[in-house]
Design a protein around this nucleic acid. Sequence first.
DNA 1: CCAACTTCCTTCGAAATCGAAGATATGGCG
DNA 2: CGCCATATCTTCGATTTCGAAGGAAGTTGG
Lengths: 372, 372
Amino acid sequence: MRGAQGDLLRLVAAGHAESRAELARLSGLAASSVSLRVEELIGSGLLVEEGAGTSRGGRRPRRLRLSPGAGLLAVADLGAHHARLGLLDLSGTPLVVEERPCDILAGPDATIDWMAAAFEDLLAAHGPPGVPLRGVGTGIPGPVDPATGRVVAPSRMPGWNNFPVAERLGAHFDLPVLVENDANLMAAGEARSWPKCETLMVLKAGSGIGCGVIVNGALHRGRGAAGDISHVRVRSDSSVTCSCGHDDCLEAYASGAALMGVLNEQGIEVRRPADVVALVEDGVPEATALVRNAGRLIGEVLTVLVNFINPDAIVVGGSLSPAEPLIASIRAAVYERCLPLATRDLEISTTRSGPDAALLGAGSLLLDAVLA
Amino acid sequence: MRGAQGDLLRLVAAGHAESRAELARLSGLAASSVSLRVEELIGSGLLVEEGAGTSRGGRRPRRLRLSPGAGLLAVADLGAHHARLGLLDLSGTPLVVEERPCDILAGPDATIDWMAAAFEDLLAAHGPPGVPLRGVGTGIPGPVDPATGRVVAPSRMPGWNNFPVAERLGAHFDLPVLVENDANLMAAGEARSWPKCETLMVLKAGSGIGCGVIVNGALHRGRGAAGDISHVRVRSDSSVTCSCGHDDCLEAYASGAALMGVLNEQGIEVRRPADVVALVEDGVPEATALVRNAGRLIGEVLTVLVNFINPDAIVVGGSLSPAEPLIASIRAAVYERCLPLATRDLEISTTRSGPDAALLGAGSLLLDAVLA
DNA sequence: CCAACTTCCTTCGAAATCGAAGATATGGCG
DNA sequence: CGCCATATCTTCGATTTCGAAGGAAGTTGG
C-alpha cells in the first residue's frame, strides 16, 4: 500500500489509532487529509467503520477497524522439535494457532517445504474464502542476518549455516517474507503488549537462553546477533566448557538444557523444560535450587545490561518462565546490584503475550513489509 | 525553522547533504521541491552556494553550505576541575575553543553563572558582529534527566542533586538550552566522525569511566543513566568497596582516579590522568601494568555489551585514551571473548573527534533543538 | 573531438496536503 | 432543559509537493 494510505493503514493495524482524529494526531497529517484517505480506504474495502468509540469529552469518534477481508498472514515459530504455526489477520489477531512436531535436524530444505505445506494446510482449513494471503514469516532458533534473511552460524542447527531461508520460503509464496531470530520475534510481539515502554528487554528462557531488545519502540538487530546473552562468562566455582569453545558461558549453567542435564545426572528424569517447571511446582528441592541458581546467574548478567540500556521493562518468557523462582531470583539480582536510577521505574515480569508472542511479533513485523 | 525548510537546513548543517540532489535523496522530497526551498533559504541568508562539488559521473553539484552568519552556538564541557568552552557555527565547526579552570564543587549556582559569563566573554572576543547566538548547551559529569534537564543523583557533584541546570542556564539566555551527560555528548560528537556506523559505543576513560551509546544513529538516553558501565561488578581477587556501596565495581579498579590512587600509594606521584599516560609513555612498569589491567577489566565488561548490542564500532576517548596499552588490552579482551558474529566487522579504535568531541556533540544535539 | 550516458537542477501543470471555518455530536453544569 | 465547552469530522479555497519532461554540465570511451 503506497504512501499516506499505507501509513494510516499501518497505524490502525498496529492498534495505535482507532479513529480519524487519532490518525491525524499520530500521522502528522491534517485532519482533512486523513478523512479523504480513510474514505478511500473504506471504499476499497480495507477499512471498515464499526460503531462509535468512547467520548473524550466531546463528540464520540467513529471507530475504524481493519476489514477482516483485508488479508491474512501466515506465521511460524520454529523450535528444535516442534513448531507453532498460525494465521493472523492484518491487525495481528490470530485466527488459528497450532503446534505441530517438526524436526529442524531434517535440514533446511525439508523443513521449509514442510512449513510451506503446513501453511497451505492451515489456509485451506481455516482461511475465510476470498481473503488473500498477504505475507509469510517465521522465527528461527538461531542468528539471522537481517539484510539477507539467511541463517548465520547457528549453534544447534546443523546444515542450516548460511542457508537463504527467506529466499527459499519466497519461492513457495510470491509475497513479502520475514525471517527473524525467535527471541527477536518474541520481543517484537511482547512490545505490542507494553505500549508505554520505549525500551524493552525480552528474555526467552527455554532450552536455550535468548534475548530480544526493543530500543525506541523498534527491534534492535545490530548485525543479526544482537540480544545474545547466552555466551557471557559468569562467576562460578566450577569450570564448564560451552559449545562455543569458551568456559563458563551463561548458557552452560542457566539454560533449560543445562538444567535438564544436571537433573538427569541426578537420576531425575526430565525431557523438556516444561518438566523442570513441573518439578519446581511440585516442590522438588533439587529442581528449585537449580532454577533459583539459574535465575541468579541470568540476573547478574542482566545487571550489566540494565545499567547500560536503562530499559523500561524486562519481560521473561519462554518455556521455563512459569517457574516462579526463576523470575524471583532474576528480580533479586537486578534490584540488588543495579543503579537506583536504572531500577527506579523498572518493571520485571513474565510475558503478557503468552506462548504466541513470537507469532504476534512476526505479524507485527510482517505488517510493515506488507504495507510498505 | 519550520517544516521542510528546517529539515533541509538540518541535513546541510549536520553534514549529511551538500547539494540539492543529496537533499532530495535524503529528505524524501521531490527534487523540484528541494530546489524551491533551497532558493528560499538562500534568499533569507541561511544557506550559501559555494562553488562546485565533485562529480559522481555527471554534472557537478553546486555545493551548499550553511551561511557563517546563520548563527552561533555556545557550548561547554564541564569537568571536575576545568571546563572546555567553545563557540560553534550552526554546522558545528568550532570558531574558538578554550579550556578554563572551574570548580564544580562551588555548587551549581556559582558554576552556571560563571559559565554564562564565560559564554558572553567568548562572544565578545570571538563572535563576528551581527551573528546571533542561537543556542547554548553543556555537558555534565553526571546523570541528567533528558526530559527536565536536571542533574540526577550525581556521585561526585555535591549540591547538584536534582538541580534544574537547563532552567537556570535558560534564565541567562532566552534560547534553546541543552544539558546532557558528558559521555553522551562525547558519543554524539564522535558519531559525526563515524557516518557509516549506525550503532556505536563510545567509552570515556578519564578520572571516571563513562560510556555513551548511539543506536540507529541516535543517542540512546534510556532514563538518563544509559551507558553506565562504571558500577558493573568485575572478576577480581581482592575486594574493594566503591562509592556506590557495592563491592568490586569497575570504577574502583579501572578508572583514572583508581589508577592514580594506587600509583600515589606506591610513591609515584600523579595528579591527573594525563600524568598516568605520561608514565606509560616513559615506560614506567607499574603504570603500564596498571593500565593494562584496567583495559582488561573494561574489555571484559564491554564483552557482554558487544554481544548484546552488536555495535559497528567501539570508540575510546577521554584523557586516559592516549595510553596504548589501554586500548590494546580492551581489544584483546573483546576479540577473545565475544561471538565471532559480533566482532566480525567490529572496529575498536581511539577517538576521531579528539578532545573537543563533547563540544561537537553538544553542537550536533543543539542543532536539532535550534532548527526544530 | 564527438556521441552516449550520467548526474544535477529547473520548469510547469497535476495532484496531494493544509488549515481555517463550520457542521455535527456529546458530556457537563446550572 | 438549554447553554457552553469539547471533541470529531467535513467542506473548500490556498498552498505545497509531486513528477514528468527537458535543459545544463560533466564523464567516459571510442
